[in-house]
């Protein structure tokens, strides 16, 4: 049950060598190199070459690497997929996902490239970005569309434009979309990633939005500036009390397993599966912050 944390997904323009080479030093859980919106039409080829060379030459440590390709309806998408998938080193972020068929089409192309390059079939994962009302309404089908799908992500700017509204600081217009995506992800057993917070100078706004999406249940949030990483990680970090309680729950669970007891109690209170899972999640977040231990529970 051990899973990679995705509290922060740092967007990095794919045609900026300085940003690409330094992307790993900021401590984001994931780095997302962008070949799509951040790249002008005239520089799509240059960005694709740069990211391919970077993936094959540079080390980003344990950080998850993701590449946002151009949309499947563009002439760039297949070239992007070929360049990235053939390295065997990155997850694909599929933009503008509106139906399960979009994921299936992407997965089919990925399988062909993996086969052609001797890469383990199925090893390249996909994150589907939901950017429209249609995508949100189809989120449950998208989330279960293919085993390669490891997360679905909300892209709030495009989504709110499609809704004929705008992304406000308070974010009430995103409530339905966020809940749809979250339920779809949880139902499918994959991660849910929230949108960017665009104003990098508004730390209070970022804090409030991150607290909201953490409470809703999201696994993390996209970010556009390294300055936002620390704030998001702080909000996702459990408190000392939460860690102490989680350790006690896991100890009680492991003790019960050792003694073959089906009933687990802690301080006179019944500890059932949801409590154990929540404790596991708390300790794994603590581990990512540099203290505590990782917990892998046998199902």
């Amino acid at each position: 049950m051990s899973r990679r944390l995705r509290r922060t997904m740092l967007f990095v323009p794919g045609n900026n060598p300085g940003m690409v080479k330094d992307a790993g030093i900021y401590g984001a859980d994931s780095i997302m190199f962008d070949l799509e919106d951040a790249i002008s039409l005239a520089e799509k080829d240059a960005a694709r070459f740069l990211i391919r060379e970077a993936l094959t030459s540079l080390s980003f440590g344990q950080t998850e690497i993701i590449v946002r390709i151009n949309g499947l309806d563009t002439k760039f998408a297949l070239l992007d997929l070929e360049a990235v998938v053939s390295t065997g080193k990155a997850t694909i972020r599929l933009p503008k996902t509106e139906t399960a068929d979009d994921v299936l089409a992407c997965a089919e192309q990925i399988a062909l490239i993996e086969k052609a390059h001797g890469i383990e079939i199925g090893s390249t994962k996909i994150i589907a970005a939901i950017e429209s009302a249609r995508g949100v309404l189809n989120a449950p089908a998208i989330a279960v569309s293919h085993p390669r799908l490891s997360a679905i992500a909300l892209a709030a700017e495009d989504y709110t434009a499609d809704l004929k509204t705008s992304h406000t600081r308070e974010g009430s217009e995103l409530y339905f979309g966020r809940c749809m995506i979250l339920h779809a992800a949880r139902s499918a057993g994959i991660d849910a990633i929230d949108s960017i917070f665009a104003d990098v100078n508004d730390e209070e706004g970022l804090r409030n939005e991150t607290k909201l999406i953490r409470q809703l249940g999201f696994d993390g949030k996209s970010c556009i500036n390294p300055r936002q990483i620390r704030t998001i990680h702080e909000i996702f970090a459990p408190s000392q009390d939460e860690i102490r309680h989680a350790e006690a729950v896991i100890n009680a669970y492991e003790d019960a397993l050792q003694h073959g007891s089906g009933l687990i109690s802690l301080n006179g209170k019944l500890v059932d599966r949801p409590v154990v899972l929540r404790a596991q999640r708390t300790l794994n977040f603590a581990k990512a912050m540099g203290f505590g231990r990782e917990v892998n529970l046998d199902e």
Partner: peptide, 10 residues
């Protein structure tokens, strides 16, 4: 870096 040089040449 070398990887950037190769990318720009390609």
């Amino acid at each position: 870096l070398d990887c950037t040089l190769r990318a720009r040449l390609k």
